[in-house]
Structure formats: C-alpha cells, structure tokens
Write a protein that binds this DNA or RNA. Sequence first.
DNA 1: GCGATTGTCAACCATGTGGTTAAATATTTT
DNA 2: AAAATATTTAACCACATGGTTGACAATCGC
Lengths: 120, 120
Amino acid sequence: MVSDSAVLLDRVFHALAHPARRAMLRRLAAGERNIGELAAPFRMSLPAASKHVRVLERARLVRRRVVGRTHVCWMEPRPLAKADAWLENCRRHWEAAFQRLDTVLEELKTRQKGRECLET
Amino acid sequence: MVSDSAVLLDRVFHALAHPARRAMLRRLAAGERNIGELAAPFRMSLPAASKHVRVLERARLVRRRVVGRTHVCWMEPRPLAKADAWLENCRRHWEAAFQRLDTVLEELKTRQKGRECLET
DNA sequence: GCGATTGTCAACCATGTGGTTAAATATTTT
DNA sequence: AAAATATTTAACCACATGGTTGACAATCGC
C-alpha cells in the first residue's frame, strides 16, 4: 500500500503537534524514562500522560518495556527521519521553483535593458 | 512570550498531520494555485478544501491574495524551517545520548577483557 | 444586466482529542 | 497479609476536526 507510509506520517506529525508530547520526546531523547517521570514536569494526571505516551507509540516514536510495576519508555528515532525527509523534500521543491522564478525575472530584466538600448 | 514559538510549532505540525494538507503544500511548493485547483485532486467539496487552506494559513505555511474572484495561494517556507530545526535538534540529542551509551558499553567490554586476563 | 464561476459563511453531523475522576490491576515493600 | 506504588481502564465532559449541504457575495464573460 502506498498510503501505509502516509498514515505513519499522519501519526508522527500529529504526535508532534502537542507541546507536552514534544517535551516528553525531548526528554526521552536524553535517555529512558518511565510514565511517572514523563508526567512529572506537567500539571497533568497520570492517565493523561499515559494517553500522550500512547499517541507517541502509535507514531512509533516511542516504545516501552514493562519492568516490574514500572513501564520504561525509550525513543525510536526512525520515524523522525521520515518526517524530516518529507520536510526537506518539500523545501527542496520550493527552492527549485524559486530558482526558476528568479531565472525568469532575471531574463525579463535583461530583455527590458535591451529595449531601453533600442529606445535611446 | 516563550510559548509563542511553541504555538506556531503546534500549528505547523498539526497542519502537516493530514494527507490532503501535505499534498496541497507540495503542490504549492511547485508554484501558486487557487483554491479550486488545490481542491481538484481530492474527492472533497470546495468548503472542505477552503478549511484545509485556512489551517495551512494559521500555521503561516501558506498565504493568499485575492485576484478578482479567485484566491491565489502560495507557500511560505519559513515555518517549515522551524519544524525542521526542532526535529534536527531532537535527533541530535538522541544521537548524543546514543553515543554516550555506546561509550559506556565499550568501557564495560574492555573492563570485562581485563578481568578475563586476570582470570587466566 | 444575466448567467456562470469562484469562493466564503453558516449550520449541522459524526468522530476525535485532551482532560478529569474513580476503580481495577499488578507489583513491591513492610 | 496488608499497605503503598505505578500504571491502565472505564466513564464522562467540553471542545476541536473534518466533512457535508444550502445560501450568499463578488466578479467575469457575453
């Protein structure tokens, strides 16, 4: 399926579209944390934090292993690379279009110059 | 306000979290389009497309000018760079943590080697 | 001026999101 | 065995999203 990768991108961008989840991910980038530790910096109940972690898991940005009664989470960077690739691709296309536009404008200017020469 | 930039990031990532909006943005990366042209590739009413464009505008990814009865849209790349920067930063932190972990593992291995030497 | 074209606005609907509290589950500590 | 800890589940709430249709407004071509 082509759209399979698109669904993952949907989930990755959606996961990143909330400040709490971005903060969680940044902390996980530094090392493993359990749910309670991830929840601590926010004025937010444990169930709320748990939901955010599940959103990150659906985007495959985070995984967990259960160690006794604690759930230890860690970051998985590969989906970030996919998002990154999409952004970069979009920007590259824009820059190419901009370059083409610039060329056209430059050409118009030189044509204008030629006409001025004829007029003088 | 610190959170001002965070709100923009929220909006940018949210704008990118829908396949129709990503497709619209990619088309706009190639050049200007009006609302009807943006809606055309999808089985989607004009009002629906209009809403998507507004989401892109709130994220400052797209702007428009009204030319007669058509609304001409173009892409504004700067917020993409902000999203890009966030991703890159997150990945860099992860790589640094990974590097540290790798160093620790390497050190453990050499210590193990030393102990083996003592044992023989 | 009239009809066709381009787009918005308003109202509505189903579903999703982000949060809460209260109860249940599993594990560790005492 | 009982109490404390870490987390999930369930039920609920307010509000946002993504879509529709129908009516309205502006502009272009004849």
